[in-house]
């Protein structure tokens, strides 16, 4: 069966799985963003804390995804969510944290100290300085971190199909189980395409939210 014919027969299902995939990645990215960015900013105030947090996030990153699902299974089974979307979202959030925290931390740290000095010397408080100067200047780098996390998570979410989270990984998993090459190919191509599209979209967003004065 050709790829095209397979798609024609399974269009609704493909779209549904793609939607599920996007939903998994999107939700986990949102959660990681809402926790990772504040953590990244917070740790700029303490060198000691920054080292510990970044080292911790690094350790999580090094655990292979399939192993992480395995590790979470008995723990989440206690609350009855050993399989399905819950472990998938948790794993995706954990993986996203490192690039988001690290990029936020680096971006804020790299703001020209002269600007911070000028702001403080003019009477800006910590929050105002953060809101009006540090965060706007850090936005491009923070967004680059989000992009890395998003693209990486599209790949990891495909593996989450093995714990029953759904998504385009289902095609790959089931295709392998049934030796159905076209099915595998469809899943693989769809995941790749999704990653490319998200990367492009995030690049556009990055350009759009970068303060105008930084683009000159």
């Amino acid at each position: 069966m050709t790829l095209f014919a397979f798609l024609q027969d399974n269009l609704a299902r493909t779209l549904f799985l793609a939607w599920e995939h996007v939903w998994l990645v999107g939700l986990s990215l949102l959660i990681a963003m809402c926790t990772g960015i504040p953590i990244g900013i917070a740790i700029t105030r303490s060198k000691d804390l920054a080292q510990k947090v970044l080292a911790g996030a690094n350790v999580i990153m090094t655990v292979p995804s399939i192993a992480l699902f395995g590790l979470m299974l008995p723990i989440l089974a206690i609350v009855g969510h050993g399989l399905g979307k819950v472990p998938a979202v948790i794993a995706l959030v954990l993986y996203s944290l490192l690039p988001i925290i690290r990029n936020t931390f680096i971006a804020i740290k790299n703001v020209d100290p002269a600007l911070v000095d000028a702001g403080r010397g003019m009477g800006m408080g910590k929050w105002r300085l953060l809101r009006e100067v540090e965060i706007p200047l850090a936005v491009p780098v923070i967004l680059a971190g989000l992009k890395t996390a998003a693209v990486m998570n599209i790949g990891i979410a495909a593996i989450a199909a093995y714990v029953g989270a759904g998504g385009l990984g289902v095609f790959i998993q089931q295709g392998i189980a049934r030796s159905h090459e076209t099915m595998i190919l469809t899943g693989a191509l769809a995941v790749s395409l999704l990653a490319i599209v998200v990367d492009l979209a995030m690049s556009l967003l990055e350009r759009w939210v970068t303060p105008k004065g930084l683009k000159i």
């Binding site: 020209d112 000095d117 403080r120 003019m122 009477g123 800006m124 100067v133 303060p211 004065g213």
Partner: peptide, 30 residues
């Protein structure tokens, strides 16, 4: 400290204009 600083102008060697703000925005900070 903040009130004290608001009551004085501060100009530094590195200039320290905020690159994300326009010239008007920079002057308008205080």
């Amino acid at each position: 400290a903040q009130k004290l600083r608001l009551s004085m102008g501060y100009v530094i060697q590195q200039i320290g204009l905020f690159p994300n703000k326009t010239i008007a925005g920079n002057i308008a900070v205080v």
